[in-house]
Each structure stands twice: as C-alpha cells, then as structure tokens.
Amino acid sequence: MQEHEKVALQLIFMGIAIAMAKILVSEEKTTWRVIIGRSILNGFTTLGAGAVLIWISDLSMLGVLGLGAFLGTLGSQFVEAQLRKVVKAKAGELE
C-alpha cells in the first residue's frame, strides 16, 4: 500500500472515530441509520484534510491528522446542518 493510501485510510478511520465519539456524548436517540450516516459523513469530511496537501505539500503527518480532526468535527456539523435544511425544504415541497 502506498503512503497516500495509508494517509487516506487513517483520515477516514479517524473521522469514523470522531463520529462514534460524538454519538456517545449526544443525548439524541441513536439508531443504526444515524450511526452509519454520521460515520460515512465524518469519514469523508475528514478525508478532505488530505486535499490540503495540494497547497502545503510539506505538511507533516501530524498536521494532516490534526486538520482532519478539525474538519471531521466542525465540517461534518456544517454539512449535516445543510443536509437537514435541504431535506426539510424538500419535505415541505411534497406536502
């Protein structure tokens, strides 16, 4: 496995771990649908940190993982809020 593939997998797994931690501390009702959805969302939001390497190619691995944690936490909250707005708007159109 090449180095960039290892970094991508590490970022995805870190995003999934962040999602699981957020679910554990949440008082919201958890279902398998929520767990899987948030894990996928966080995994790929965190993976976006790898794109920073395009601009800062000499960034250390610790820097990439730290940025991944930041994006996985804050980025997924933003994406989830936007998705909820879209779903509510579409549901309103159907009524």
Score class of each variant (00 low, 15 high):
residue 29 K to L: 10
residue 20 M to L: 15
residue 19 A to Q: 02
residue 27 E to W: 08
residue 20 M to W: 10
residue 24 L to D: 05
residue 21 A to Y: 06
residue 46 T to G: 07
residue 53 L to G: 10
residue 45 T to K: 02
residue 56 I to G: 03
residue 39 S to H: 03
residue 56 I to R: 10
residue 48 G to R: 06
residue 24 L to E: 08
residue 33 R to A: 15
residue 47 L to T: 04
residue 36 I to A: 14
residue 53 L to W: 05
residue 25 V to Y: 12
residue 27 E to G: 11
residue 35 I to H: 01
residue 50 G to I: 03
residue 57 S to N: 13
residue 46 T to K: 00
residue 42 N to C: 14
residue 21 A to Q: 02
residue 50 G to A: 07
residue 55 W to H: 14
residue 47 L to E: 03
residue 25 V to H: 08
residue 28 E to W: 06
residue 56 I to T: 11
residue 55 W to P: 05
residue 53 L to I: 10
residue 26 S to Q: 04
residue 42 N to G: 09
residue 44 F to D: 10
residue 53 L to T: 09
residue 48 G to K: 06
residue 56 I to D: 11
residue 37 G to D: 04
residue 20 M to Q: 10
residue 21 A to M: 07
residue 43 G to A: 09
residue 23 I to P: 00
residue 35 I to C: 06
residue 47 L to A: 08
residue 33 R to N: 15
residue 31 T to A: 07
residue 24 L to Y: 08
residue 34 V to S: 12
residue 18 I to P: 00
residue 30 T to G: 01
residue 39 S to T: 09
residue 30 T to A: 08
residue 25 V to L: 12
residue 57 S to Q: 13
residue 50 G to K: 05
residue 32 W to C: 06
residue 41 L to I: 11
residue 19 A to F: 00
residue 22 K to P: 00
residue 55 W to S: 15
residue 43 G to R: 00
residue 20 M to R: 09
residue 52 V to Y: 09
